[in-house]
Structures are given as structure tokens and as C-alpha cells.
Design a protein around this nucleic acid. Sequence first.
DNA 1: AACCACATTTGGATCGTTCAAATGATGGGT
DNA 2: ACCCATCATTTGAACGATCCAAATGTGGTT
Lengths: 344, 344
Amino acid sequence: MAGSTADRHGPTGRATLSSVAARAGVSPQTVSNVLNSPQLVRSDTAARVQAAVRELGYRPHRAARQLRTRRSQVLALRVEASPGDGVFDRFLHALTDAATDRDYRIMLYTAQDDEAEIAAYSELADRWDVDGFVLTSTHPGDQRTSHLAERGIPCVTFGRPWDGSGHHPWVDVDGAAGTRAATDHLVAAGHRQIGFLGWPAGPGVGDDRQAGWESAMTAAGLAPDRLARSSNDLTQGRAAAAELLNDPTITALVCVSDVLALAAMAEIAAHGRKVGQDVAVVGFDDTDLAQVAGLSSVNQPLAEVASACIRLITTILDSSADGRPPERVLLTPSLVVRASSGAR
Amino acid sequence: MAGSTADRHGPTGRATLSSVAARAGVSPQTVSNVLNSPQLVRSDTAARVQAAVRELGYRPHRAARQLRTRRSQVLALRVEASPGDGVFDRFLHALTDAATDRDYRIMLYTAQDDEAEIAAYSELADRWDVDGFVLTSTHPGDQRTSHLAERGIPCVTFGRPWDGSGHHPWVDVDGAAGTRAATDHLVAAGHRQIGFLGWPAGPGVGDDRQAGWESAMTAAGLAPDRLARSSNDLTQGRAAAAELLNDPTITALVCVSDVLALAAMAEIAAHGRKVGQDVAVVGFDDTDLAQVAGLSSVNQPLAEVASACIRLITTILDSSADGRPPERVLLTPSLVVRASSGAR
DNA sequence: AACCACATTTGGATCGTTCAAATGATGGGT
DNA sequence: ACCCATCATTTGAACGATCCAAATGTGGTT
């Protein structure tokens, strides 16, 4: 009875709207309505149709729907070459999950730089019918969102627009709150001379994290005056850490990244002092490096970031939420305490 | 002249086959032929059509093509939750690049486990018209490829089939060759007592890497008898390393992963010996951990793996290369020497 | 009994492309 | 001149879904 081979399907053998309709004894349009606008159809016919859908294992054909509706249910995300610290990994997983929950998929692309990325937008939007973009690594002078806006392609960014403008929805993690939490934690543990090992100055993530340390220090009545800067690599990092450690009164370091924190740990050991006992260290990002090295670190809530990204962009796409101003989400990271800052 | 607004495009304003055809003064089918079967059309008309294509900025609409041809030019890849060591990051980037070169795109999905992944196959293939799959993390008892074969969905795996069967194309890195290179390197540096820190025994990646150490030791006339095993985490790893280091004659360790190598380095330091001077260590995967820690490590040629994966699966898809047996590619990794094994 | 409002269902037309078959142009052989 | 083979191009019909508008059925009013 169920699924007799006499049912007429498409050439591929897959069930189609018509084959389901034939089986349920209704028109194709009614089947479509059951699936897309259930309120239009009487409940008993809907039940009959749904039974047929189940029996035939019908699944709507995306390409056909897309051709008519001009919606692909696909979001594009750029994979970058650089970091490899596992943060992107985790974000990617969470993003794919969150997208799937709302019946979207993530499609990848690469680009050498922003310029190449911008050039890729129309190709992706035109040819692949990507509905929208999730952009990461926002930075001062970022032109990408405005190019997308010009073409009317929706996007969300993970990362706020660092240079004021930006009339698009974004999700970000409050880096200042993270370093503030780290600093507070160190102050509570009795530290008074707390240095900051940061990136070269300039608007963006680095300054934001530094500001958190400064404000927490000031709030605790301490002077945020022990500061060194370095690019994000071990060699330069150790040199910068050495600068700070020349002052023997320093007992704790807040670092802008796990790599620099590791550099600091190495330098502390080289100075014959013990990490966690003589000098406490806190990093940022909670990468696998931190986990392996027993480094306290600030953990970004990437799953929440991802689901917020998806929520924001799907809201725009699904309900054409015009008029309302673009939504912004700022999430608070959490400190993971390990041996490097006193957990024994 | 060029691009006058009188040109009739589709409702979206995008150029379509018909609008190009109208401009070039030919039928839509001819335009299609110029693009897909140039040998069918006379060169002067082809030139005229191509000019029109350029002028209007025409790009074929994938969904429409897909509806007709049943090809989506999309490959699916699962993102896993676990490692976060950056290896997947690098592979992903290379894979996306390689796919783009052949006009394919990578679409992501997640799954809790193999069972869930298998359940997702028909959904992905039916609804999203994914042309094929790239599978990673093959392991003994892997049922995934056979399920795909049953449904006639092409796939490649990054990782060989560890339990004999497997009638599908695959690409893998020769782990044994990697540990062999590492061991040879240590032997050449004068080491004689070289231990191996491995994963729990069992067919698969772990045994393969161990075999490389064994064969290199044997070839050098040394006994591969200093062996300890541990799961891939720091705590257990240190305990296992301690076992080996209890024997004070050991001067070098080959490790199955960077994490275990790091565990060994920590334990060596704890024993009051110096990494690189008293005891040399080599890891595997060349993750950012290794780079940061100055750990010598075996680097997998992920870009080559990725492009081979794409080459293999697109060969199947584009030329329906039936009959021929599935292609296999085994690539050789390279050793990156850092301070942990004597580079000064 | 005739009528109208409303809920439900149906019939084309259409999205942009490719496939299969039909047409038109060209050229050679007899 | 005629016919046929060959090449270049065009025509018509799908692919599988949704849009829009029109057709049907239902109930309540007058």
C-alpha cells in the first residue's frame, strides 16, 4: 500500500509536490500551502497531505523554490588563512549549528584581502544566490559593510564597527569587560602592581582590551602605568614582557592574547621566577594553548555570538525588518582561572 | 550605448540568458551554447555573444541551472566540535580555495556522531542538492562511506579506510613516514635511546605513527622498546612521559601529537632536565602549539591534501569516471625542526 | 429561494536554464 | 536543377516550486 511503485514521481525518482498532491488527492498548490501557509488550509486536508508527505518522504527541492522566491537560505562566511588558534574553529561549529536550527546553511569563501573580498560579493550574491554575509575580523577603516549595503545585501558582523559609522547589525564580545574581570580577579587575590602586555596602539580590539585593564585599575585606586606593547608573536612578546619584568615589584600581568601571555610565562621563568606563585598571568581567548599551559584566560562566549549572529541576520532576511534600527549585541566574556593566576 | 536601460532583464534587474540573447541578436539557447558547448557555435557569433555577456555583466543563475541539470556544484563538509588545534582551520581554508578553483563551493554541516551524520546525508543530498561529500576523521568501523555508496552519492575521505574495505577514493598523509623522518632526524643527531609517546593501541592513526618510529629504529639497528601510551591530554600525557623518563638513559622522545609532546616537555622540565639539550622532543601536526613552544613537529601538507581531495571528487563528478578503480593518494609529511630537538 | 461574504481549493503563468527535436542555411555530388 | 548531408541556429518543453487571480464550496441573511 504505502509507497506503491505506481506513484508518479519526478525523473529522479524523488517525490515532488505533484506526486504528493496526487497521492493526497489534492492540487499541488494545496500541498505547497500546507507547507508554507498552513493557516490557509483546512485541518483535515492538511492532515491528509502531511500523511502523504511522510509516506513518500517528500522534501521540497531547494533549487526550484529558490528560482521562484529568490531566497537560497544560504549565508556566506569567509575563512581566513591566518590565526589557526582554534577560535575560528569553535565559532564556525557554533555558527553552522545555529544556522541549521533556522534552516540556513553556511557556505565558505576565501579572499586574499578586503579588496578581493569585496570583489567576490557580487559573484557570490549573483551566481550563488547567497542571502547574506557573516563578516568577522572587523577593523578600523573596514569598507566591507558599506559595499554590501550599497548592493542591498544583508550582513551581520562579529565585531563592532571600530570607526563610528556602520549602520548594520553586529555582535561582539566586550573585551574591556574581559580584561576588567581579569584585573579584578588579580586585585582580589591581593596583587597591586599589575602590568598590561598589549598590542601596538590603535583603535580596535587591542585598545578595547587595554581600556578594561585601565578602568579596573583606576577603580581599584591603582595606577595603570605599567604597560608594554608587542605584536602577537613569541619573540617580540618576550622582549616586551622583559621590559615589564625589569620592575621587580610587578606581581601580575594581564595580557591581550594567549600568545603574549605564553611569551610572558616563558620570560618569567627565564627570570627565575615562578608563574602563578611569584607572578600571576592572565591571557585572552582561552585557546587550546591556554588549556594546555594551565594559563588563566578570558573565554569568549562563541556559541552565543554565533547564535546571535544568526538570529540578527535571519530576522532581517525572514521578516524584512525594515525601518527598525539595526540591532546590536554585546556579550560579556568569562574568566577561566587556572594555575597561572593562583588556582592550585 | 552600452547597457542602455532599455534592455529587458529579469524582474530582479539582473541580466539573464534572454537579455543577453536579445542584445546579441540570437536566441537564448545559442547563448547557453556559447557558454557550455562552444564547439557548437560559429566563432563570429560566439564573439558577439561574449561581448554582450561582458557588457551586461551576465552571470548564469545557479539555481536555474541546477534545477535543470541536477548539479549544484556544492560539496558538503562536516565541522567537528572537538580538537580546536588549528589543523582543521588550515585544511578548511585550503579546501575552500581548491574547490573555488574548480567552480565548486563548500557547504558545512554538523553532526553529533556518525549515526547523526549518516542520517543527515539524504537531507543534504535531497534538499540541498549537495553533489558530494568530503569526509574527515576516518576511523576503524567507519560506516559512513558505505552508506553514501548505497545512495550513490560520491565522496572522498581525508584519511584512509582503516579496516580494509573501502571502495572509495581517499587522500591521506603517511603518518609512519612522518615519525620515521622524526626518528631518523634524532638518530642522525646522535641519539640512541629514543622513546615513543603514543596513543592507546588500536588500528588507525596512532598505530600508523607508532609503526614509523618502530621501523626507523629497527632500520638503525636500535630496539623500539621504550614505549608509553596516553590519551591526548596533558595530565595523562605527563604521567606517561614520566614512565619513560624514569629511565635516565633516554635522550629523545618521538610523540604522536603536539599535545603529548608538550606534556613530555613539561615533564622533562619537572625532572630538572633541559628540553633540546638533555632530552630532544618531536611532536606531530605542527600546530600553533608547536610553533609557540619551539617544538619540532611533523607538518602535514594540508594544502596538497585539500587540492587532492577536490581533484579526486571533481573527477568523479565532472566526467562520471566510472569503471576505473577509485584513486588513492598518500602524501608525505615534512619535519619542521625547532629548538626542542637541537636547532639552536 | 436567492444572495452575499468568507474560507478553501485550484489553474495557469513564471523564475532562468538546459535538453531534445525541428528548422534554416550551405555546399557537394550526380 | 535536384536531392541530401552537414552545420548553425532556433523552437518548444521541461525541471519543481511559488505567485497571483480566479473558481469552488460553505454558511448565514434577507
